[in-house]
Amino acid sequence: MWLYAARRVLFTIPIGLGVTIICFALIYLAPGDPVQSLLPPDATANDIAQLKHYYGLDKPIPVQYILWLGHALTGDLGISIQTNRPVTDEVWRALGNTVSIATISAVLAMIIALGLGIVAATNIGGWADRLATAIAVFGVSVPTFWLAVVLVIVFAVQLGVLPATGMGSKGSNTFSWFEWSEARYAVLPIVAMTLTPLGILMRTTRASLADILSQDFIQTLRAKGLSETAVIRHAIANALPQILAMFGLQLGYLIGGSILIETIFTWPGTGFLLNKAILTRDIPLLQGTILVLAMAFVGINLIVDLIQTLVDPRIKRI
């Protein structure tokens, strides 16, 4: 198992390198000039050239890549063209904001999904199963950004009970999870973020539980006279590795795919940063954000894999 773990860790290195190449290459598909947004509409070609030189954007692309990679390895992702601040600081700050709501959403989704999944798996075909499954199908089918817009209109505009946008009354610097006047800003983004993983996790829970409950050893346990609660508890323990793995993936998806929700709620996380970087063609920021998000995803996958190996030694992967 330790060998597997070591190999698994080593295996992420080439992946990581591949990721940096993709991150770097993508940006150069882009139309338009990266420094354009800094300039007034009637800037001269000379002004543009001068500014490009200043940001090193006039060097050959492979040279830019090597330089960028070298810096990236030391934690220096360059300077944001828009804000003139280090990209690392920008992404780091935003990552915290994204990870917090993504984690809460994933945990919330997990708790609800476990509840619904257990009810569903123990009442296959019953009305509770159907209701739970309907919620799950809605969750995986609804365009969440559309749902987010509806949430804003209902709760912020019509009912006026929750804020429509932003993170905290004075910005994310003074945001606090422990004061309702601040934490309420996170409610709608979390609700909008929870639905999809809720659907997927409910589906996984229900399927794995139903699977385990139909296996022979459960019958044996029942025959031994174990109470139904104890049997279900046993089944859950067996299904947990699978559910945990899915939880990890969903968390990764939420962190990496937060762009729509964060854009709608102006939640200053990485997705929001990404959208700003795309809008303003801030190349260092765009590269840095994508890189960090992809690496975070790789990291989460690695951790999930290792945990899975740990809790479920039956898994032996090559």
Binding site: D129, L159, V161, R206
Partner: peptide, 24 residues
């Protein structure tokens, strides 16, 4: 994960709305 028939998809928004309104 679905059984052979799907129930009518019902909105959970109503109950959610009530809950959140209390938090407001």
């Amino acid at each position: 994960w679905r059984s052979s028939c799907w129930p009518r998809v019902r909105s959970v928004a109503t109950s959610l709305a009530l809950g959140l309104a209390l938090l407001g």
